[in-house]
Design a binder for these strands. Sequence first.
DNA 1: CCTTAACCTAAAGTTAAGTTTAGATATTAA
DNA 2: TTAATATCTAAACTTAACTTTAGGTTAAGG
Lengths: 138, 138
Amino acid sequence: MQEMAVTYSIGEVAEMFGLSVPTIRYYDKEGLIPNLNKNAAGVRRFNEDNVSTLKIVECLKNAGMPIKDIKQFVQWTLQGDKTLNERSQMFQELRVSVQEQMKQLQETLDTINFKCAYYGKATSDGTEKYVKEEMHLN
Amino acid sequence: MQEMAVTYSIGEVAEMFGLSVPTIRYYDKEGLIPNLNKNAAGVRRFNEDNVSTLKIVECLKNAGMPIKDIKQFVQWTLQGDKTLNERSQMFQELRVSVQEQMKQLQETLDTINFKCAYYGKATSDGTEKYVKEEMHLN
DNA sequence: CCTTAACCTAAAGTTAAGTTTAGATATTAA
DNA sequence: TTAATATCTAAACTTAACTTTAGGTTAAGG
């Protein structure tokens, strides 16, 4: 009474992640999806582990990490406990980096909000003239 | 009793913005810095207006806008009040886009924080074994 | 004056992260 | 069983955003 392991085709995985099929092949080629099996005909079958790996790959991508560094991390995970320090340090540095990105993005949003107010007034005036005087304070 | 207009060299501007000199020349070539004057010898002199333009260019870059779209915005500003609607709409769309980026980045940070806790425990244990069981809940 | 650092243009080169193409094989639904 | 759809590999191509190179000219300090 063995459970049949659930697997997914590359097209299904592409759909799940909103990525293109060639992009996923490219990630595989780059070594970002270790232990990805192929059937007798050479067709990729993704198991839950492979999907989990892709989830963390996506997280690291969203954090702005380049593919080669993501690959390094994946290699570390394959090497087991002896690379725990490297991985721990990587995530701590990444946290700082993402916090800085958030701060930068918030400043950008503040500026954009100011511009939205500026152009809101300007469009309702039909001209930049008055809002420019008002907001430049000159 | 005329005030002498303050101007900056390309090197000073590069310093101000943390950009390389060739990058600023590239922006100029791409049309992102209109009304940038050169002296008789062909050397660029940046006035306050040019610096202000670069500030907004940097903001748009940080918002993830590609150079060609930034150029479009700069062109609109040169065309005066008749492009107010385009510019207003651009900033409203940009606001939404940046808000979405912030949300995405926050989710990424949440995942990274989880991983920091995971690897913090794993490194103090000297192995992933226990924290994996604990956190995977299996 | 002289030299050293900063500036110029034009054109070629780089890099990351995919995308596209070509030609072949596999899977699925009717 | 056949047609349409999905998959495969390898290699070439694309794009954005710079950077580098080459060969000069200019500006500033001693």
